[in-house]
Design a binder for these strands. Sequence first.
DNA 1: CGATCCTATCGAAACGGTTCGATATCAATG
DNA 2: CATTGATATCGAACCGTTTCGATAGGATCG
Lengths: 337, 337
Amino acid sequence: MATIRDVARHAGVSISTVSLALNGTGPVSEETRARIDAAVAAVRYTPNLMAQNLKRGQSKLIGMVLGDAANPFFGRLFGTIDKHISGHEHMLIVANLASDPGRELRTLTLLKRHRVAGIIMTPLRNDPEFAAHLNELDVPVVLVDQDVDGTALDFVTSDHRRGAEMLTAYLARLGHRRIAYVGGQRNMWAAERRLEGFRSAMAEGGLAVEPEFEIVADYSADLAYDNVIRLMSSPSRPTAILAANNYMAIGALQAVTDLGFRCPDDVSIAGIDVVAWSSIVMPRITTVEQPIDELARVASLWMMEHVRGEAGRGGERRCHVAEPRLVIGHSCAPLPK
Amino acid sequence: MATIRDVARHAGVSISTVSLALNGTGPVSEETRARIDAAVAAVRYTPNLMAQNLKRGQSKLIGMVLGDAANPFFGRLFGTIDKHISGHEHMLIVANLASDPGRELRTLTLLKRHRVAGIIMTPLRNDPEFAAHLNELDVPVVLVDQDVDGTALDFVTSDHRRGAEMLTAYLARLGHRRIAYVGGQRNMWAAERRLEGFRSAMAEGGLAVEPEFEIVADYSADLAYDNVIRLMSSPSRPTAILAANNYMAIGALQAVTDLGFRCPDDVSIAGIDVVAWSSIVMPRITTVEQPIDELARVASLWMMEHVRGEAGRGGERRCHVAEPRLVIGHSCAPLPK
DNA sequence: CGATCCTATCGAAACGGTTCGATATCAATG
DNA sequence: CATTGATATCGAACCGTTTCGATAGGATCG
């Protein structure tokens, strides 16, 4: 592959002149510039970014760590962030955790080896060991969606607690009293906030939460399916189900359908974060939507500020909490008196 | 950030010895190795991959170009390819075309600047200019899903034509004669194959294709929706609709539902490539599924062969055509006599 | 006209590694 | 004991760039 040396030789000038001309970083005569341009075309020269970055001491690569690439939420998040980032001749180097928290540390190390200029990540773990690693990483990090306690990293999220509250309160307003909650892993940050929101809205509405109505289904459609089958087979079944993410909402809907119940006539179902793409599910599921575009925009912006060294290292961590949006579908009905 | 020089100084040995020890590429005494390990930990040394790659003349980065990151098909494709690739201490640098063919050339150039070891891409364009660029790129490329005529690049796809045939024949077997086809852009490779499959199966079944029943909706749910609304409002409406991708199938389903028709009682709907994630749509849409895992596996394998220089440069291009799988749902019904 | 200042160009020293060809030590061999 | 062959270590060249300081030839100025 052609190097800058080939261009210099072909144009009959020195290497430094070529560099000066190509980067527009020094005075070059009109005639020389033309000869260099011709030479570039002739030898098919493409600057080697690895060499440039090495010399400049900074790379144009930004790491992005996704919790689960197969989930459309992360797909849209990535797509939107990419749109913002790649405008600045930067590129994203993306890693997929496939919902496996065990890959998180290894991935971060690998990204650091690549000397990425920064990392945007949706973390899975939330424990002191992980926080310590993040703090010692020495690379700008913007967390998205989930927080890691004990770090001072920029953080962009939507108000998970409020979202769960909105849906729970909505179900309560429809007259439901026996509301089941299908939630994610207990140690995950967002899952905890959502659970808090559910409980708080239940308490607010003067409703009791029966222990067996608080289910942990690890954000998995299959687990949600099994649990809802069990729940709905009991004589003391709920009249409404709130699922904490898109997969579990769909698992729940499938379960009640397979049992012969109709939604919303026999049971109401609402789900957090059932993104637009799946909202075509019939009946359309009532949901709170995260403003993915807003999350992506703020995360990209802050990351670019870090990259340009403009991030006010005032020590203060920045947090942006976006408001979720209640989208009423056809999956919830008022409870007959 | 600590360099190999710091490690050497701290351990009291030469730089080359550190390199030899760390890479296990030369004999190093047990004692020295221990001192070096200690020094690495002490100065928090992380090898600079950019420098390593520059020296070794090859990078551990593989480019991946996605047609549309928000589409779960690409999300799952990426996730699975990442699983295979990232095992070999390689990483993916991913770019999203967001369905905009205009970004394709710029993206490839940028990836080449980064000196990626290879590129896995799902192309959008299929024209001579683009083919010429690909041929002159001088980087190993594996095409996935769509072909580019006039190149000799490895190509992994599923049998789009056969998939469309299977669904069309299935509808015909149910007794449908007035079948409408909602297809993608006319110049895209896969869209053409699917259209061929539809036409061939129609001819095979002795069915005539009315021109107004062959719709071009650019893989967009909205366009499909509008067109199906128009189609179904006509007195000579079809009894079955075949949509060429997941988005359009959902748009079509939404349209017939909004018009007050029931599916499958009033009209049957089938869709190509309605991935598992959306198969929960009620009624579950009959579809042909692409074996994403198989595509990802073969593409990753071939790419790693290229990277290791094992690719038999016999000049012969390799093609892998996977068989799509017919998944019967509840969206199609026999036509009453 | 000599000093001064642009303008255009160049050589050489980095950046952080790898790797090849020394060199030095030491045990085994004939 | 001189030779050989491992074994362990090192110095220096190099990968493809950028960038700093130097040089040289005008044009401008007092």
